[in-house]
Amino acid sequence: MTFQAIIKGTFMALTGVGGLTLGSLGLLQGWHAMQANRLWRSMKTQPSTKHFEPAMVEDLPAPAQRYLLHAIQPNARLASSVEVTMHGAYTHSADIKAPKYPFRGKRIIRAGKGFVFKVVVPGSGLQRLHETGLAYYANQKGYERAKYLNLIPIYFRLSDPVDITRTFLERYITDLVLLPSALLPQPGVEWQAIDDQHAKVKITQDGQAMSLTLTIGPAGELQEVCFDYWSAKGGAKTYQAIPCGMQIHQEQRFGDYTIPSSFNFIWWYNLPDREPGTIFEFELDSARFR
């Protein structure tokens, strides 16, 4: 066999393997797309037939009453899910000077069940490839993945399923400030007053409890949310409860609900010995309650 024949055979073999690999990735991508769409559909709900009445919150602490009466219009349908579209910027670094990458995404949150978040990070020159991601908490399971060019896996969060599930369960709980009807008095929701500007709400879901401390303005506007978030990101070396906060810069009324529309998600929040780091910056474009 000549040298040219060997080279030609090797090239053809590599091409075949490459084609098989791309084909396999394509099939995997198709399966993931079906999975994401199925999960998204499972979060959809029918419009509620129940309506909000101010008497529903009359036994709550004063700041909690003020917040919920501001967030939900009288006689509003009691939504059990919300779909939002958003854009913003993010980084995995805890360094506030680290570069942030723009993203756009959509999220659906269903009370008592979980959330699905689909995100796209556009490419920027030769420095960064187009990236897509999916994160969810559903059926008592958390999951995250990201891919370049909507095809090549970057990472799949499968090696630590217990920690990942707790992380995304807590992500779901923090998301409930975008679905205020889920914070009305009901099993699994406990309110406690701190002072006239602060209230704590403890939410229990699937056997896991998490508390959010809300700063509430004089008109009932939500200004800040503080919590401990289970994660190994933001500069943490291992999974741990990281003090985090959401700084809310603007709110907007969507239909019968008023929710934060511009806010930051900040690691290591309100710690005297550590500089905080903004991980996500969000701007809501739309919100649909059902």
Rank of each mutant, 00 (worst) to 15 (best):
residue 57 V to L: 02
residue 230 W to V: 10
residue 211 S to C: 05
residue 261 S to F: 02
residue 55 A to T: 15
residue 24 S to M: 10
residue 94 A to F: 05
residue 236 A to D: 11
residue 70 H to A: 11
residue 157 R to E: 11
residue 215 T to F: 00
residue 229 Y to K: 13
residue 276 P to Q: 12
residue 137 Y to L: 04
residue 101 Y to N: 09
residue 185 P to K: 01
residue 125 G to R: 04
residue 290 R to S: 03
residue 238 T to F: 10
residue 146 A to V: 08
residue 108 I to H: 00
residue 233 K to G: 14
residue 282 F to C: 08
residue 248 I to K: 01
residue 259 I to H: 02
residue 247 Q to A: 15
residue 172 Y to F: 11
residue 12 M to V: 12
residue 47 P to Y: 02
residue 93 S to C: 06
residue 288 R to E: 12
residue 274 R to E: 12
residue 104 R to Y: 09
residue 282 F to H: 13
residue 26 G to R: 08
residue 33 A to L: 10
residue 227 F to V: 13
residue 269 Y to S: 08
residue 2 T to D: 14
residue 176 L to P: 00
residue 84 V to F: 02
residue 161 P to L: 03
residue 87 H to M: 07
residue 130 H to N: 15
residue 87 H to S: 11
residue 152 I to S: 10
residue 92 H to V: 08
residue 164 I to R: 09
residue 85 T to Q: 14
residue 89 A to I: 06
residue 42 S to Y: 04
residue 85 T to K: 15
residue 104 R to Q: 14
residue 115 F to E: 01
residue 54 P to Y: 08
residue 160 D to Q: 10
residue 273 D to S: 08
residue 57 V to N: 01
residue 242 I to Y: 02
residue 210 M to K: 09
residue 88 G to M: 07
residue 176 L to E: 02
residue 248 I to Y: 05
residue 104 R to G: 09
residue 103 F to V: 06
residue 183 L to C: 08
residue 25 L to R: 07
residue 125 G to N: 04
residue 129 L to E: 14
residue 236 A to K: 14
residue 179 L to S: 02
residue 256 D to N: 12
residue 13 A to E: 01
residue 278 T to Q: 13
residue 104 R to K: 14
residue 125 G to K: 04
residue 277 G to F: 13
residue 177 V to F: 03
residue 120 V to I: 12
residue 153 P to R: 05
residue 24 S to W: 12
residue 251 E to R: 09
residue 61 P to K: 01
residue 61 P to D: 01
residue 16 G to D: 06
residue 81 S to E: 10
residue 13 A to H: 01
residue 33 A to F: 07
residue 235 G to I: 06
residue 248 I to F: 06
residue 123 G to W: 11
residue 159 S to M: 10
residue 266 I to Y: 11
residue 258 T to G: 05
residue 142 G to Q: 05
residue 159 S to I: 06
residue 280 F to H: 15
residue 285 D to C: 02
residue 134 L to C: 09
residue 198 H to G: 01
